[in-house]
Amino acid sequence: MNKTKKEPIKNGKLWIILGIIFALITPWYFPAGSYKPLFWGIPYWAFIIIGASILLSAYLTYILKYEWQLEEENEEAEEKKGEK
């Protein structure tokens, strides 16, 4: 699983998913004055936004861990090559 990491800015699929998650977080698609039904005294849309925020955090964590090319990794790899 030694997959080469790339810059995520060049991956269109990552940006599309990120745009969808941001659309879920923004409450523009809820009807005006929408607050019912209430769950535990909280409007339903608040749970949707909280869930989308957690999804955004998980997705950004995935991008940073598996897709992001860090300069330190390049420098460490070059140093190891120089030592051999």
Results as ranks from 00 to 15, higher is better:
residue 1 M to N: 15
residue 3 K to R: 13
residue 3 K to C: 07
residue 4 T to E: 13
residue 4 T to V: 14
residue 4 T to L: 11
residue 4 T to P: 04
residue 5 K to D: 02
residue 5 K to T: 04
residue 7 E to H: 12
residue 8 P to W: 04
residue 8 P to H: 03
residue 9 I to S: 14
residue 9 I to V: 09
residue 9 I to D: 06
residue 11 N to A: 12
residue 13 K to D: 14
residue 17 I to G: 03
residue 18 L to S: 10
residue 18 L to N: 15
residue 19 G to V: 02
residue 19 G to M: 13
residue 20 I to Y: 06
residue 20 I to W: 12
residue 20 I to A: 15
residue 20 I to N: 05
residue 21 I to S: 04
residue 22 F to S: 07
residue 22 F to Q: 10
residue 23 A to C: 09
residue 23 A to D: 04
residue 23 A to L: 14
residue 24 L to T: 00
residue 24 L to E: 06
residue 25 I to F: 02
residue 29 Y to S: 10
residue 29 Y to P: 03
residue 31 P to N: 11
residue 31 P to R: 10
residue 32 A to W: 12
residue 33 G to P: 00
residue 34 S to C: 11
residue 34 S to G: 12
residue 35 Y to F: 15
residue 37 P to H: 05
residue 38 L to I: 06
residue 38 L to H: 05
residue 38 L to Q: 09
residue 38 L to G: 01
residue 38 L to C: 04
residue 39 F to A: 09
residue 40 W to P: 03
residue 40 W to L: 14
residue 41 G to V: 01
residue 41 G to M: 01
residue 42 I to W: 02
residue 42 I to Y: 04
residue 42 I to C: 03
residue 42 I to L: 07
residue 43 P to S: 02
residue 44 Y to S: 14
residue 44 Y to R: 13
residue 44 Y to L: 12
residue 44 Y to A: 09
residue 45 W to L: 10
residue 46 A to W: 12
residue 46 A to L: 10
residue 47 F to W: 09
residue 47 F to G: 02
residue 49 I to S: 00
residue 49 I to V: 06
residue 49 I to L: 02
residue 51 G to D: 03
residue 51 G to E: 05
residue 51 G to V: 00
residue 51 G to C: 05
residue 52 A to F: 03
residue 53 S to H: 04
residue 53 S to F: 09
residue 55 L to H: 03
residue 57 S to T: 13
residue 58 A to Q: 08
residue 59 Y to N: 00
residue 60 L to A: 05
residue 61 T to M: 13
residue 61 T to K: 15
residue 62 Y to E: 03
residue 63 I to N: 00
residue 65 K to M: 11
residue 65 K to D: 03
residue 66 Y to A: 12
residue 66 Y to Q: 07
residue 66 Y to M: 09
residue 66 Y to I: 06
residue 69 Q to A: 15
residue 70 L to T: 14
residue 72 E to L: 11
residue 73 E to Q: 11
residue 74 N to L: 13
residue 76 E to F: 05
residue 77 A to G: 01
residue 77 A to I: 04
residue 78 E to T: 04
residue 80 K to S: 10
residue 80 K to M: 11
residue 81 K to Y: 04
residue 81 K to P: 00
residue 82 G to K: 13
residue 83 E to Y: 05
residue 83 E to N: 07
residue 84 K to C: 09
